[in-house]
Nucleic acid binder design. Structure first.
Lengths: 279, 279
DNA sequence: CGCTTAATTGACACCAGTCAATACCCGTGG
DNA sequence: CCACGGGTATTGACTGGTGTCAATTAAGCG
């Protein structure tokens, strides 16, 4: 097991959940329960689920609320006149979307996978962010991470070929998609993103993705279990081909931390819908 | 003369210069003179010039100061192992670079053209930005503009072909490079950026750039005066081909405003070096 | 068991990158 | 005044990768 197979340790960074709790009204919230420094609310009051391809944010409408991603993956995208779609960024659990005017123009945010979101009043969040230092720090950290990802994508689209981009993507995926490490240092990656989304993110086509995947399989770098499950036999090789040696940790520790936080907060087998509350 | 040939009017947004002035120490600065709401300092004390390809910011060193671009164009870039370079963003007069950790990793900032910068102490600027609301608003506006540009580039690299990208770039260039409108609605664009930089920004090669330019010339969309001067015969056509109809104004008004501000502050024929002072 | 959707595979064309040669501009210096 | 040199732009020939189109297979699901 090398550096890539282990999930980054949870450090601090609970600020967003903590801040949300801090701002809680004096009167006890129905079904709410403190959990660590964060507040979890059993009521579905502020929670909204999205099926794949459901709209989350339209381009022009600033919207009255921002969204906290409880689970799932959102995509920021833009369409060309011919219908061509380019995904500009993905958003992951623990992240806040819709706060700043990041979505001006003909871009939109949709759910890429089944997602569970928490609605937060925009003004409320605005106040929180200005008043609470820890929250602001966390939020800026998020913004920084997102900017890093955008920089990577831009660089990748301009400087790398489709195969290299996919290698990088697979390597990065181990940190934001289910990845089951095996004793021998390899691991099985569950790709939760539809092929089309991967293609549109990496600026290529599903056909190319398919060909590249099978090429990597034949090269012994990955092993195809089924179209959505790959056993990564040579993770360092993927990292090298994707040219993300230096970026790998930087781009994924934030994600891993937030994911870990949420996983530790959300009971995995709870039938009762659980929700972080933002009022 | 249509919407594209006129420079956007100067509105507000003097906050950065104004804030810098506000923070001026009580003792009069040598050669400093108030100009409008901004402070201009005739001494070259805080000014530094950069020749093309000179380094401004290295990747890892956070640096002690941030830079205010007085004139010229900077580029944010990243190299692949094979030497391939991708330009991730350009920075223009009136913008601040080097404040946030935007330049982590193997990226660097260099001067793309002859540039004149003003050094500002990082901590000083930090204080300014937190204390001065107008400055902060201005600064956020900049960040937003830069994010918009990055989004455009990413989308462009993924969804458009080289020709379309170049068309968009030419159209956008009218707002951040010398553009002399003519009575008939056309105008002459002076391309200050080296061909290689354009190619590396648009993710293509100088050969392709050359071919496309001559193709556009034959199509009657532009007229090549010399390799660095094009008469744009059909600006709306460029906008359409580049698919930036909706983005055009959004992406360039900020640039135009800042450019206009600076031009009105800097005496164009002054032999004495003029500099915005940031301490 | 048929339907829909996703994934794969094949054939093909063409764009665009690469390499190489030439033309051009603009200094300098003889 | 011209020759020379360095850098940039241009042009040509070539080719390989990748998108496109189309057909086939596989998989999920009622």
């Amino acid at each position: 097991m090398n550096q890539f197979t282990s999930v980054a340790p949870v450090t601090n960074g609970h600020a967003i959940m903590a801040a949300v709790e801090t701002a809680r009204k004096p009167e006890p919230l129905r079904c709410s329960l403190p959990f660590g420094r964060a507040m979890i609310c059993g009521a579905a009051r502020y929670r909204e689920d999205r099926a794949p391809d459901d709209k989350v944010l339209a381009g022009d409408a600033p919207g009255q609320h921002v969204w906290f991603i409880r689970s799932g993956i959102l995509r920021l995208q833009r369409h060309a006149y011919d219908g061509h779609r380019q995904i500009l960024s993905l958003f992951f659990p623990g992240e806040i979307v819709g706060f700043d005017g990041e979505f001006r123009g003909e871009v939109s945010v949709e759910a890429a996978t089944q997602s569970s979101l928490c609605r937060i009043d925009r003004r409320k969040f605005e106040t929180l962010v200005t008043e609470n230092d820890a929250l602001r720090a966390d939020f800026f950290r998020q913004k920084q991470d997102q900017l890093d990802r955008l920089h990577w994508l831009t660089w990748s689209l301009g400087a790398l070929g489709p195969e290299e981009r996919l290698c990088a993507f697979l390597a990065l995926s181990t940190r934001f998609m289910p990845f089951q490490p095996l004793p021998d240092g390899t691991g099985v990656l569950s790709v939760e993103l539809p092929r089309k989304d991967i293609a549109d993110l990496l600026g290529t086509t599903v056909e190319s993705i398919s060909r590249i995947v099978h090429r990597l399989d034949e090269a012994g770098i990955i092993e195809i279990r089924d179209p959505a499950h790959f056993r990564l036999l040579d993770l360092p090789g993927l990292v090298a081909r994707g040219q993300i040696d230096g970026l790998f940790d930087r781009m994924t520790t934030g994600l891993a931390i937030r994911r870990h936080q949420i996983e530790s907060l959300v009971a995995p087998d709870s039938a009762d819908p659980i929700c972080f509350c933002g009022r």
